[in-house]
Design a protein around this nucleic acid. Structure first.
Lengths: 210, 210
DNA sequence: ATGTGTGAAGAGCTTCACAGCC
DNA sequence: GGCTGTGAAGCTCTTCACACAT
């Protein structure tokens, strides 16, 4: 379908571009150059132009990009015109924090349901979301046509839960479990492993880059 | 000092190797091949060998790696033989979750102090850590010789706080603010931007890889 | 003159493939 | 035979540099 393969890094930079464009739009800027956008996002100007060129020719030579055209174009690329519904599985410390995370609403993401297997947590409420029994997750996924799940379960069950969720129709998972998750290529998985990140920082703390 | 530049990805994989080695050690395995270790960490065997070779010749040809030799060697590379002290700045939702995050203690990381500027939070306790006034952070950094900071402040202040921390002696920062942080190269910064990760997943959810 | 779009060059990481040792 | 260590090849993403449009 796609003509050229789009680098994953390009996808990862689109949302920061969008944030900067929203900011520019609020300041009534109508035109932005790749150089200015690159400054705002702390990247190289050439990469801004190349990233955007994967999706079309949004700029005008000699002028720059029209903020009010580029902004909806990126929203459309990322498919976040409306609120995007995601579910949360695993309501431990991280899960609770994510339910209360105040940036999500303003950035177009909505956690519509949360699930756990701990009977003491079930039916309690956090930030307006009632925690449901994990056995009821399939019903929600099917009824609400949910495709994206935030996974914050203990390592011991993460692999199995991920597999089950994929079978139920989830095709993108953001995991906070400190373990790799094996999934077919059509299921996108991103693992955020806090201990590994800290170990990396400890290394660089002792071996600074010069 | 270094002969060859070590890829950042290599550093990031060392902690997962360590985890697997600890697991093998607990199961009384004494020898492990690059193939087995690669399976456990979900990577390619050649990359395990290449990664380890940046730090020395730990294996024996025809045999494999000795678990009880490799394990302390990696601990030594990552400098996590003892508990590593880190501080937390910003005790919002994410900060609170990190203070309660149960995996850190078992993985050699200890949040020894937490700071905020909200008078209502100061002097309250979370998981055994008393939240202190941000104005007292320099004293702790100097007295305890802290080099690593977890930053979970609102975007509006993140840049300034990061700069201040660097001036006080911090040289590695793990930030959860949804913004890029500009720092000199000798200060290692890792930003975990949850909204950007979710935006990326939303994209792939609509455009699955085949 | 100014700034985009893009082929080509460059840089960095991964994978291959095999020599060398057990 | 089995498995590591590593130069070379391959791949991917970034940066350069310039043709082209305004």
């Amino acid at each position: 379908m796609r003509t050229k393969p789009i680098p994953d890094e390009t996808i990862s930079r689109m949302f920061p571009y969008l944030r900067s464009l929203i900011c520019l739009s609020e300041k009534k800027s109508t035109i932005v150059s790749s150089t200015r956008l690159a400054e705002l996002c702390n990247v190289n100007p050439a990469i801004v132009r190349k990233d955007l060129s994967y999706f079309g020719e949004f700029g005008k030579r000699g002028i720059g990009y029209n903020v009010n055209e580029l902004l909806p174009a990126i929203r459309n690329i990322l498919k976040i015109q409306n609120f995007k519904k995601v579910i949360l599985v695993g309501v431990g410390n991280i899960g609770r924090a994510l339910l209360s995370y105040s940036s999500f609403p303003s950035e177009g993401v909505q956690i519509v349901a949360a699930f756990d297997n701990n009977q003491e947590k079930i039916n309690t409420e956090i930030n307006g979301v009632i925690i449901q029994d994990i056995d009821d997750v399939e019903k929600t996924i099917k009824n609400e046509n949910i495709k994206i799940c935030i996974l914050a379960t203990p390592v011991s069950v993460t692999g199995d839960v991920a597999k089950d969720l994929a079978d139920m129709g989830i095709n993108a998972i953001l995991s906070f479990s400190p373990c790799r998750i094996n999934m077919p290529k059509n299921i996108e998985v991103k693992c955020i492993d806090l201990s590994t990140e800290l170990a990396r920082l400890i290394y660089y703390s002792h071996n600074p880059q010069q």
